[in-house]
Write a protein that binds this DNA or RNA. Structure first.
Length: 806
DNA sequence: CTCCCTCGAGTTCT
DNA sequence: CTCGAGGGAG
């Protein structure tokens, strides 16, 4: 034992790594646990005595590290996509329907590939958390959660504590870089044990293994993660360099297993042929589901050959070569205790079924949305009914159908108490004609599914929700201002509009809280509670103050204008640049912007012309200063030409082409407003078009609109930066398509820079595409470009073009 | 006019 | 997550 500590540590690490792999990944231990523990403690002692001996791949790193203040964000080099689910989710789906859908799926793939048969790799769809693992020169260096697919959280310390995940790859010549994707799950038996322990300790239990796994992994203190038994299964390779990437998915899995990753046993991931093979696999897994050691919510089919995967490529955010086939959602029976209505931010009245609590799909469900009146009628849900409930997409509870045989009936007239009559006890559901909160009329627009409260912001429900929206994370991001307090602030009228938030004092908040507590059965105030409350109020006031300088797009989104979400708000900010300009734009001007059509444009114009909105905005701007305001985009000029605006004015019979012709014959929109009926006859247009135009011009409001539009147009053009129109000819009017992963630029960065230079970025390749910018792992879009003879450039070439244009 | 895709809005529970 | 509506391309 008088060995060199360095040698000894090396030896112990290797031995422990091997034993660990045998135990956790292969489930075939070769030494007793006690022996493992003894060696483990020896290595720990050695490393404590000689800190220089600690390495990233040491098994001792599996016990967890001191808590982090928060998880850092990690951007995924290769986005973590979600899988499409092309199969219907109806409860009635039986073997025959499923088989038919599989045949369709297989046919589509064969058609696109132009092949007679296709082989599919299969696997169970784990119900856990998707994780990405990065190994550099064979050592685990980073682990991240999926997050939104583009960026996730850095959970490296927590992942290290999962015994079955190799800290070092089992290879003498590991790849320089390997990124592996897989799922962290909690085995059913470990879940049972954890919950038993939680109960014994008086801690709260987890509703299902998935929640337990998520809760355990997302601990800032990785020592807690280490105390929970989590498992991992690898299912894909995202990146490799310095090694040969296997040609099939099956080959990838075998390689991963050889490198030391736990993968699902081979019998559970056969490579099958055609629809019949898929169907047999699906039925087989569904049968075996209860006896699997982990929870699954379906199966996954992947086209086996990577070459074929690349041909199929991607649609928006999902690969077309891989697809999830979920098992039918678990269903349960319960009773409808009441049907109540909720009022949304836009006034939408939504009927909600209050249910007798029932455990389904891993959680207890007490509410289920009934969406709208038509939906309730179609399902004919009534109070007292027994209904089948499931969690749609395994998340949102849904009433599937009513068990009519169990509908409570009124006793038959004249009959005895026990003989039910033929009349249901409750009538069919009717949406109320007046808002349950404010009593305003409920109106349902022609052709729309939703009914709305007409009260607008005079309705307390809408006001409260408008403020909730305003304070939301993606809007003004006021931390700590939640639903409960907003409702109270609105109810007691401390706050009537969003600007009032900025006038609140600590005392106002404390007073509000006292009243709220009183209303909810007061707890006598203690000195300690008082201190906590005043700290809470201080923090909230601070959070509100911190929201006074929002980026412009967020402020616009926060206003809660109908049809204006995150994306439209950004468009408005990018193109028009300032609240001052945006608030005075007429509808046709909004409609000149990309992705804004008639409905959205009108909604915007209506919002700003409504006087109480204008007042509220004025008030708000006394406290809030949007950041990043700028002059209108130089690219705006080309969108404001007379013809384009004429086409957006909805003048009867004035088509795109006719607008062009008309624009060529008049000096300006204002000049057109001055045309007399006589003068219109001189225009070189078909008589019917002239007639319609003359009629339209008869309305003074239309003439005013034309003049106002022209004035504003001039105003905007004057405000454009002087180097307007400087878009470089290299980019001017050119359409780019990005595909694959670029070496240095993210997709968004590339898009921003191309657009800033005056180019356009589109999602799919067509004849009208000028350049395809291809990175690594480029798929079908590259193939399409080659097929159509579109120029393909790499990132370096794009950067060179951008340099030239700057 | 008809797809196809993206965006907005509503929703549940922990 | 899902639905429906809006926008744009073919």
């Amino acid at each position: 034992m008088s060995q060199d500590p360095h040698q000894r540590a090396l030896y112990l690490r290797e031995l422990l790594t091997r034993y660990g792999h045998e135990y956790y990944a292969l489930d075939a231990p070769t030494v007793p646990d006690a022996e493992y523990d003894r060696l483990f403690r020896e290595l720990q002692a050695l490393e404590t005595a000689h800190p220089a001996l600690r390495t990233a791949d040491s098994p001792t790193r599996r016990v967890g590290a001191a808590p982090l203040p928060e998880f850092s964000q990690v951007t995924h080099e290769v986005p973590m996509l979600s899988l499409g689910n092309a199969f219907s989710d109806m409860q009635a789906t039986g073997f025959a329907e499923r088989h038919a859908e599989l045949i369709q799926f297989d046919e589509r793939i064969r058609r696109e590939l132009g092949q007679a048969t296709v082989h599919y790799a299969t696997e169970p769809k784990f119900d856990g958390l998707a994780i990405s693992l990065i190994y550099q020169d064979g050592v685990l260096t980073q682990a991240a959660t999926r997050g939104d697919g583009v960026a996730g959280e850095n959970v490296t310390e927590n992942i290290r504590t999962i015994r079955s995940i190799p800290l070092r790859l089992n290879s003498a010549t590991p790849p320089a870089l390997l990124e592996v994707r897989g799922e962290v799950v909690m085995l059913k038996q470990d879940f049972e044990r954890l919950n038993a322990e939680q109960t014994a300790r008086g801690d709260k239990t987890f509703a299902n293994p998935r929640n337990a796994a998520a809760g355990s992994l997302r601990q800032l203190d990785s020592r807690i993660t280490a105390s929970r038994r989590l498992s991992f299964f690898a299912y894909a390779i995202a990146r490799v360099s310095g090694a040969v990437w296997p040609e099939t998915h099956d080959g990838e899995m075998n390689w991963l297993a050889a490198l030391g990753f736990p993968v699902v046993e081979a019998a559970l991931r056969p490579v099958v042929e055609g629809a019949a093979g898929l169907a047999a696999y699906y039925e087989g897994v569904m049968q075996g589901r209860p006896s699997l050691p982990f929870e699954i919510d379906g199966v996954v089919y992947k086209v086996n050959r990577r070459e074929e995967q690349e041909t199929l490529g991607f649609v928006s955010r999902a690969p077309r070569w891989a697809i999830a086939h979920k098992f039918p959602a678990e269903e349960a029976l319960t009773q409808v205790e009441a049907i109540e209505e909720q009022v949304g931010r836009t006034g939408a009245i939504t009927p909600v079924a209050r249910l007798k609590p029932v455990f389904v799909g891993g959680v207890t469900v007490t509410n289920a949305t009934l969406h709208n009146e038509d939906e309730v009628r179609r399902k004919d849900v009534r109070v007292g009914d027994t209904v089948i409930v499931r969690r749609a997409g395994d998340v949102i509870p849904e009433v599937v159908s009513v068990v009519l045989a169990q509908r409570p009936m009124r006793p038959a007239a004249g009959g005895d108490l026990f003989s039910a009559g033929d009349k249901p006890q409750y009538p069919p559901y009717r949406l109320p004609t007046h808002c349950p909160v404010c009593g305003s009329h409920v109106v349902r627009e022609e052709g729309e599914a939703v009914a709305r409260c007409s009260g607008g912001l005079s309705c307390k429900a809408q006001r409260s929700q408008a403020i909730q929206h305003f304070a939301g994370r993606r809007m003004m991001d006021i931390d700590g201002l939640g639903e409960r307090y907003i409702d109270k602030l609105v109810e007691y009228e401390y706050v009537r509009g969003v600007a009032d938030l900025y006038r609140l004092s600590v005392d106002d908040l404390l007073e509000m809280k006292r009243r709220a507590d009183e209303d909810e059965g007061a707890t006598p105030e203690t000195v300690k509670a008082g201190k906590i409350a005043s700290k809470w109020a201080d923090n909230l006031i601070e959070a509100i103050a911190a929201s006074r300088t929002p980026p412009l797009p967020r402020l616009l989104f926060a206003l809660g204008i109908r049809h204006v979400g995150e994306s439209t708000a950004k468009t408005l900010a990018d193109w028009l640049g300032s609240v001052a300009l945006i608030r005075q734009c007429p509808a046709p001007l909004f409609a000149a912007l990309p992705d804004i059509g008639g409905v959205v444009a009108q909604s915007l114009a209506d919002f700003f012309s409504e006087s109480h909105n204008a007042d509220a905005l004025d008030q708000l701007l006394r406290y809030v200063q949007p950041q990043g305001e700028h002059a209108p985009s130089p690219r705006l000029a080309e969108r404001l030409d007379t013809a384009a605006l004429l086409a957006r004015l909805n003048i009867p019979r004035l088509t795109e082409v006719r607008s062009q012709q008309l624009a060529g014959q008049i000096r300006s929109l204002a000049a057109l407003a001055d045309f007399s009926r006589q003068q219109t006859l001189l225009l070189d247009l078909p008589a019917e078009v002239i007639n319609a135009l003359a009629d339209w011009l008869d309305a003074p409001a239309n003439k005013d609109a034309l003049r106002a539009l022209e004035t504003l147009r001039q105003h905007i053009l004057a405000a454009l930066p002087q180097d307007a129109g400087s878009a470089h000819p290299l980019f001017e009017g050119k359409t780019f398509v990005l595909t694959g992963t670029l070496p240095t630029l993210s997709r968004d960065q590339a898009k921003d820079r191309i657009e800033a230079a005056g180019g356009k970025v589109s999602g799919s390749v067509s004849k009208k595409t000028h350049f395809v910018v291809a990175g690594s792992e480029a798929g079908s879009k590259l193939a399409k470009a080659q097929e159509l003879g579109v120029a393909v450039i790499d990132e370096a070439a794009l950067l060179a073009m951008l340099d030239q244009s700057a």
